[in-house]
Amino acid sequence: MNSFVLAECTTVEGALSQLKDGAAVKAGGIDLLERMKNGTYQPSKLVNIRNISALRGIQKTQDGLTIGALTTLSEISEHPEIQTQYQILSDACGHAATPHLRNVATLGGNLLQPVQCWYYRSAEFECIRKGKNFCFAFGGLNQYHAIMDYGTCPAVAPSSSAVALLGLDARIELSSAKRGKRMVSIKDFYVEPDANPTKFTVIEPDELLTAVMIPKPAPGTRSAYQKYGEKESFDWAIADAGVVLEMDGNTCRRAVITMGAASPVVRRSQEAEALLAGKRITEETARAAGKAAMTNVQPLSMNAYKVDLFPVAIYRTILLAAGQASRDPSAAG
């Protein structure tokens, strides 16, 4: 790891004053230290926000929940209110990485990770995401890459909490010293590779992700998230699904189906959602929704298996959310 100056901050204002000249923000530091150890990122200054107590904690508000950016994935997954009212989020945060990493990794850091691709994450490959003009994945080893909506870069979205927060229609609070606060919907937070391959989110260099707001779920809402990987733990999803169902008795009033490891930006499947709206949740409707989510897939040379895996992940997660199945023992963690 390169040497650096560490600016220890105890207030948001102090941290914001340091966000200049390429300084990197460090919270839990898990993804940051990995990229620094791998040599793909060598900032000369780290702004340590880990000790800003104002950015930590989960608050119930009139409109829903406000989660401070420094709240750890463990704290979120073990929170009683989130476990009962926002199951999709406790599932997603509780199955990322490993137990010990979740004890340190923060929600803000999880949302801000750059895409997952072994070429992008290696210092030996200068790719389109690093401002060059080439993608190694299209002609190379692409078994873990995207199957849809990838444009010029098929690296997949890395954040499991984002798959949940997209399902919950969350908003992200960004703060800057000059412009104050702004709220960005999670659906507008991530940048498609074709729009700008070197920019992963809309956050500006002088901004700090300070909180995540989640609206109160509509009456009758049930939700779930499941992730499938090659290993049970410490593995990235090869397929994952977030499901939010607004139920009237046995009938689904509205459904939101989200996916992470299918594309570079977390996405919803309107096709799958349309098949569930106004219907009873049964094995058949759930299976049909899973299949519909694969409309417009364009698998790469080595990842056609994902086109079979995603429908299963979605169908089983719909049944889990509806309370018609237990957690899939073949899902991760």
Binding site: E8, G29, I30, E34, N48, A97, T98, H100, N103, V104
Partner: peptide, 27 residues
């Protein structure tokens, strides 16, 4: 592994298990 992938470096920070390879000592 020095990347938080194996937990061989597990220590407790205020009794909570963490990977000491992925934490700066100053933290």
């Amino acid at each position: 592994c020095d990347r938080g992938a194996c937990s061989g470096c597990t220590v407790w920070l205020d009794k909570v298990p963490v990977n000491s390879c992925m934490m700066l000592a100053v933290d």
